[in-house]
Amino acid sequence: MQAPTGPYRKALSDVIGFLVRRLANYIVLCLVATFLAFALASLTFDPIGILMQRNPPPPDAVIQAKRVDLMLDQPIPQRFLSWLGGVVQGDFGQTVAGHPITDELGRRIGVSLRLFLLGVTIGVICGVVLGVVSAIRQYKLTDHVATLFSFVILSIPVFVLGTLLKQPAQAFNDLIGSNYLQTLGEATPGFQGTWFESLGDRLRYLIVPTLTIALGQIAFYSRYQRSAMLDVLGSDFLRTAQAKGLTRRRALFKHGLRTALIPMATLFAFGFGLLITGGTFTERIFGWYGMGDWLISGVTAQDTNVVATVTLFIAVLVLISGWLSDVLYAALDPRVRV
């Protein structure tokens, strides 16, 4: 890339200004989305009803106290504002059972992010490679195999895939004669050891769930990378590159691949949505206590605060990925910069 010259630097500041505006819009979207989730949850959830179903039913006084505790006597916007006020100060409120959400939040975010980041990184890298190979060897065996793989993977819901992958993991364990691959939980409970040993322990629990989520991402990105690459294969500039004396292979990699990466930037944002839903299932199936798991149990327990917290987390993630998408696009495509 060229050293920034005068007009270029000006364009750069324009882009930064644009990205800032875009970020502001995202923050508004985030808030509206969270409010929507909060309002919908408040409307449909009936935590008192669940309480009443207990046998024997709790005394009236307890129920009244709970009602006040959960602010059910106040209108929804007010409840939201008071919750949001807490969030700003780092207090995400309490669960229906009365535990502070903030205590659990950090650990759960860590669990989920570990899964998401690994999944998306492996997915993007392997997906792009697979897509490029597939496009270059179009209609050859490699392409057919890759295509079939993507189609099959994209047709298997994560909650089936996870269960399916447990079988070869078990077979692997049987083969090596020890329970190396773990498919329940995220670490051995009460594991004691050095930092390094602890990492090794976590790795045993990480492999199968990460694979579950990464496979879907690989299939997703490879399909799009393949078609982006095929688009580029027929382009005039690739012909110009060959006409100036580059071999087909060199022209493909230097001119083709670089250009075919551009549409992938926009896709990144969409891929992330898929990742989050997939992550929820994965956490559930492998017994990881992450944010996705929390959402499911939150809905089951009809817990508005938990749902709102998870929604905020998801909205922030989706928007960060959308914003990253913009930044990536600006970095990859000079046409956007000017």
Binding site: C30, L40, F45, V310, V318
Partner: peptide, 19 residues
């Protein structure tokens, strides 16, 4: 559209499921 894309449909329908 942007707003609905921010909220995964899975989440919204799950939240509405008690209804």
């Amino acid at each position: 559209v942007d707003l609905l894309l921010v909220l995964p449909s899975f989440l919204i329908i799950a939240v509405l499921s008690p209804a």
